[in-house]
Nucleic acid binder design. Sequence first.
DNA 1: CGGGTCTTTGATTAGGTTCAATAAGAGTGG
DNA 2: CCACTCTTATTGAACCTAATCAAAGACCCG
Lengths: 292, 292
Amino acid sequence: MLSAQTSEIRSDASLSALHASSQEAGWQRQGTLWSNLKELCDLLRIPSATSVSDEEFLFQHVQFKTGQRIHTIGQPFDTLYIVHSGFLKTVLIDEFGNEQVLSFPMKGDLFGVDGIHTRRYASEAVALSNCDLILLPFKKFIALGRTHAELEHAMYSVMSRELVREQAMVSMLGALSAEARVARFLISLSERFAEMGYSSKLFNLRMTRHEIGSYLGLTLETVSRTLSAFNEIGLISVDQRSIGIKDADALRTLRRLPPSSSRAKQVASKKAKKLAAGPNPEAPSWDTLATV
Amino acid sequence: MLSAQTSEIRSDASLSALHASSQEAGWQRQGTLWSNLKELCDLLRIPSATSVSDEEFLFQHVQFKTGQRIHTIGQPFDTLYIVHSGFLKTVLIDEFGNEQVLSFPMKGDLFGVDGIHTRRYASEAVALSNCDLILLPFKKFIALGRTHAELEHAMYSVMSRELVREQAMVSMLGALSAEARVARFLISLSERFAEMGYSSKLFNLRMTRHEIGSYLGLTLETVSRTLSAFNEIGLISVDQRSIGIKDADALRTLRRLPPSSSRAKQVASKKAKKLAAGPNPEAPSWDTLATV
DNA sequence: CGGGTCTTTGATTAGGTTCAATAAGAGTGG
DNA sequence: CCACTCTTATTGAACCTAATCAAAGACCCG
C-alpha cells in the first residue's frame, strides 16, 4: 500500500554526475549517497516523527564541485535541495547581468523553494565549495506529506522560517548602517558555524568581499574597509578570508562606529607606537547606544 | 466522515467584534460574513479545484477598522489571514521601538505566515483602512489540505510567491537608487490596483510618507522630495495622498534621475513661464540607460 | 613565473540623511 | 462654524555616509 511513494524514487533528469543505477533495495551505497527520512529531519532541525516507518524512503545525494551551478534562473523546477555539507550562494541576476546575492546556504539549509510558485527557479544556486546535497523531488515530497503529517507541517515550518529570515534581511537593509550590517553578518556566520560544530571564534569566509557586499547591499570596498576598521579597534582579527571573532558582544550590539574623527585619533595613537597605553577611555561605550 | 473539518470552525479567541453564533447550517449570513473554498481560491489567484465539494467548508470573515491591530509580535499564532477588502501594513518593531514596514497587504494577499515556524507571529499587522479579512485557522487549513491535495499545493505556491516577493524586495533595497525604489513602488501599486479592478492611473495612497520610506529603506523626506521631482518632470502628478501616473513606462525603467544640474535647468525653464513650449526634447532618453 | 582574481587603502564625490521651519489637512470641542 | 491641536507633507541647507575612481599589494593556479 506504500507503492505510490517508493515508485517516486527516480533520478532528476536535469542533473549531471548521477549514477542512476540502484533504486531497488536502496541501502546506503558507496559512502553517503542516500539518506533516510530521519537523517533528513535532523538536518533540517525539525522534530523527526516517531511514527515514521523509515528505511523505505531514501533520498539521493549529489555532489557538486566548487563553482558548479546547481540550478539556474528559469530552469524548470522539480526538486528542492538540502545542504548536507559545503557552502553555496543563491543569486538573482538583474537586467544588466549584475549578481544580487540572496543567501549563503550551508549545512541544514533548504533551497530551491522559490521555484514552487512559477514552476521555474527564480534564482540561481552556485557551489562556493565542494558540496554534498540531498535531493528532495517536490512531487515525492508532496506524496510523502500525504502519509506523514509531521513532515508536511515541518515543510510549512521551514518555509515560514525562510520567510522570517528574509524579513529580517529586509529590515536590516532598510535600517542599519554599513558597520552594523557587516557586524551582524559576522555574528550570524559565527552562530551558524557553532551550530555546525565548528569554531564560532575562528573561521574562514567562503565568499568574496564582492559577494558579501552584494548580500549586504554594500560595495566590496566598504566591506573591506569595515572589516579593517573592526580589526583596528580589536573587535575581530582579519587576514584575507580568515576571521577571528574577538568581541562578539560588541559586534552583536553595534549600531554605528565612533565618529571618524575619534577613529582617526585611535589610528593615529596606534601609529604613534601606542604611547601611554590608553588615551581613549570611552572605547566600550559607543557600541550599544549611538544614533537612533 | 467530514466532521473533523466542520467542527474546526470556531471563532478565534483573540479577535474582537465577532458574532460567534452560527456554525450549524453555515450559509452566507448577514452580508459577506462567510466565504466558501472557491471564493477563497479565486481571491488568492490560485486554480480552484474542480473536485471540491464546497459549501461545507466555510470561512469566517472579520472586520477591522482603520488603525486596529490584527495581531501583534509574539502573540500565539493560530490563524492565517486573507484580505478580502481594505489595506493593511505589516511591521517589525526593532529594539528601540522603531517600525520597519515589511509589506502592504491588500485584496487577495495572505499574511500571518511568519507565525508558522515559531508558533508566534513574528510581525505586527495593522489596518490602514477599514478591512474585511477572511480567517483561515491554520489547523483547519492543515486538515483541509489532507483531503484536498490542490489546496495544499496552492498553499506551498502562495508561500513560495511570498518568498519570491521578499527576494525582489531584498534585491531592490540592495541595489537601487532612491528614485528607482519610489518609481517601482508606484508601478507595483498601480499594477495591484489594476488587478483589483481600480484605476491604474489615478489612485490614493493609503499610507504615509513615513511608512513608504520605511518600506523602501528611505526617509520620509526623500520620499516626498522624490515624488515632487517626479511631479516636476511630468512622470506623475501628486497632491498629498492622491497620485496620478502620467508616464508608467518611464517609471518602470527608471534607474536614476538626470543629474541635478540638468534637473535644475528643467525647473528653471519651467519657472521661466514655459517659454517656447518645449525646450527639453531629451526627456525620455535618460531613464532607461544611466549608471550601472 | 606570470596572468588573473581578490583585497586593501586613499582621494574624491554625490546621494541621502538630518535638522529645521513652514504649510496643509483632519479632527475635536466650544 | 471657527479656533485649536495634532498629524502629515513639503522644502531648504548643512552634513555625512557610503559609492566611485584609482592604484598597489596579496594570493592562487596553471
